[in-house]
Structures are given as structure tokens and as C-alpha cells.
Amino acid sequence: MNIFRLAGDLSHLAAIIILLIKIWKTRSCAGISGRSQVLFAIVFITRYLDLFTNFISAYNTAMKVFFLGSSIGTVYLMYLKFKATYDHNHDTFRIEFLLLPTALLSLVLNHEFSVMEILWTFSIYLESVAILPQLFMVSKTGEAESITSHYLFALGSYRGLYILNWIYRYYFEGFYDIIAIVAGCVQTILYCDFFYLYITKVLKGKKLQLPA
């Protein structure tokens, strides 16, 4: 564990908590892409299958349980409890265009051709593009509530901090995982234009408005 990975995990935790607060407090999931939340639930389910078979630390297990529970809980809140507030019209990104290519790629590009390894690889590839429906929805609605932009900033920062963690582990542990690194870079790059808008607008108290 290093400070970058801890900061990344805490940023990820903060993002999920911000999202849950937003949905619970406003009793609405307006502006949130249910499709991205479904993809995140798939990412955690396929990645944390070793939850019971491969104990790493109490921290690791606790975070995995929280991420699994909160992502499935968010899907429940969006598609069942607050279904009436879910914005179907703007959440239209075709997620099969994300699921199929990442599934095929995980069968071809992986460290080991075993079920667990391929599912982990699929989860890594899927996570790198899972935010696309959400970013697409923000571009379609042309704006986002400030709490939603804080959620996106924390979520985008988490994998960016993981890149620093991978640089740290390469130099100090001689360790690197090219699949996680490439996917993590793609994932972080997808947030760049949002990061620019967040820093130039939201931090100045303005609402996140995308140029129409």
C-alpha cells in the first residue's frame, strides 16, 4: 500500500458516498446515468469474485464489500426506488457497444487464459469505459448539478491517483501490470475535458454548463 493508492481508494469511496448522498437527499437520480451504474456494478462483481477465496487484508475486504454493496444498492435506488426520477430520455448510450468489445478484448489480451483472470481483465477493460454513458448524458443535457460534478471529479481522480501508485510501484517495487496501467490511463484521459470544465467552472462557483 502507498499514499497514492490510499488516496485513490478514498477518492473512489468519496465518489460513491457523494452519489448516494445526492440520490438519498434529493430523493432523485436526475442527471445520473443508470447505465453507467449498471456497468460499475458489473465491474465490481466480475473483479471481486475472489472476495471469499483470496483474503488480502481487512481493509481490502471491507472496501470490496462496500463497493459491491453500494454499486448494487445504487442500481436498486435508480431502477426501483427512485425509478420515477430516472431520466430515460437522456441516458441512451448503447452499453452493448462497451460490453462486447471489452469482453472480446479480455479473451484475447490477458495475463492468463483462466476464468478468474479473464473476468478480472474484463472488469479492468470495462471500468475504463464505464463512465462513457454518464459523460454522454451530461453532454446531452448540457449541464450537471454541482454535486454530480463533485461525484465525477472524485471518481475521475481515483484512477488518476492509481496511475501515480503504478509509477511508485514500478520504481520502488519493480512491479507493473501493463493491462491495469493502459486501461487506467484510458479511463483517466476520458475525464480530461470534464476535469477542465470542473476546474475552470465548478470551482469558481459556476454551474457545469457544456458549450451547446
Binding site: 481508494d9 481490502n60 470490496k64 495475463h111 512491479f175 507493473y176
Partner: peptide, 10 residues
């Protein structure tokens, strides 16, 4: 040898 995949990470 260094592990090839980062399973200790979240």
C-alpha cells in the same frame, strides 16, 4: 518474479 497482475489492488 514480480506478480503479473495487480490482484492486491481494488
Amino acid at each position: 518474479s514480480t506478480p503479473t497482475s495487480s490482484k492486491d489492488e481494488l
